[in-house]
């Protein structure tokens, strides 16, 4: 770590290496999600921003903008780069590229890093913060003259209000997911020829339970009568049966209380295709 003296960049490098490792070995999905988002949408931007911060001081919001903005830029250009590389857009290629990029940027950011004025120590040098009514450069912490996120201590009421807002937001999302899932597919019937003498017939009840009878006819004469079990939502019933002859029209009807609900139909002879 001599190459990278800055502690935050050392931490970034460690996180990047762990994330790349997570991407290269089988791990639980949660770990992969965290590592993936860090490698794609946070670390590349953070490391790029650290190069800019060598010579330019950025406020917290500007830093957030740079982290997210540069992460998107790196992902876009990196994807184009990987597209022409041997590994193309594979998971390992993405992870190695992102990890290598972060490492290189952290090293570049550590080369001859000049001492930077603290943005919250009253220094007038504050690029990117030009403002008239509440310039950050003039604000000091009461006690220390420094600002750190670690010092952030909102009141209990603020925490409660924010927690309530988060809970309501989660509730709103849950309600909308429930509403969306309520719009399931309707009762569906399909026919899939498997060979010139075998077909597969399937029934999916959709959002409501369904029972019925499948009637198979060929050239108008009844071939088979298949009572379907009571199908619950998300349950699919399939049956493979042999047709008596492969030289005429095959019709399968789904009936419930003598009412035709769905029907599928197939013509023989037929060249099998697309299977």
């Amino acid at each position: 770590m001599r190459i990278i003296p800055s502690k935050d960049l050392q931490l970034v490098v460690v996180i990047a290496i762990i994330s790349v490792g997570v991407e290269l070995v089988p791990v639980p999905l949660v770990a992969r999600v965290v590592a993936g988002f860090l490698l794609a949408l946070v670390l590349p931007g953070y490391s790029t921003t650290s190069i800019l911060r060598k010579s330019h001081t950025l406020g917290p919001w500007e830093r957030l903008l740079c982290v997210l903005g540069f992460s998107l830029v790196v992902s876009i250009l990196g994807g184009l780069f990987l597209n022409f590389m041997p590994g193309h857009l594979s998971r390992s290629a993405w992870a190695v590229f992102a990890g290598a990029f972060v490492l290189v940027c952290c090293i570049l950011a550590s080369i001859k890093t000049p001492s930077r004025p603290n943005p919250y120590s009253g220094s007038p040098v504050l690029s990117g913060m030009g403002d008239a009514d509440d310039s950050v450069s003039t604000i000091k912490h009461k006690s220390t003259g420094k600002l750190s996120l670690l010092e952030y201590r909102p009141s209990l009421l603020a925490v409660l209000l924010a927690t309530a807002a988060l809970a309501i937001t989660g509730g709103a999302l849950a309600i909308s997911v429930h509403a969306s899932l309520a719009q399931g597919a309707p009762l569906t019937m399909w026919l899939r020829p498997l060979s010139n003498r075998h077909v597969e017939v399937g029934v999916s009840p959709g959002a409501t339970p369904q029972s019925g009878l499948a009637l198979v006819t060929q050239e108008g004469s009844k071939v088979s009568r298949l009572p379907l079990p009571s199908l619950s939502p998300a349950h699919t019933f399939t049956i493979i049966f042999k047709v008596p002859t492969n030289e005429s029209e095959l019709i399968v009807k789904l009936e419930h209380n003598s009412k035709s609900l769905r029907h599928v139909q197939y013509w023989y002879p037929k060249k099998q295709q697309n299977h």
Binding site: R32, A40, A95
Partner: peptide, 16 residues
């Protein structure tokens, strides 16, 4: 392919 780039990258690495 800009949006596709990022989407494929995130989807590949997160598994989402």
């Amino acid at each position: 392919p800009g949006l596709t780039d990022v989407t494929v990258g995130v989807s590949r690495m997160t598994g989402l």
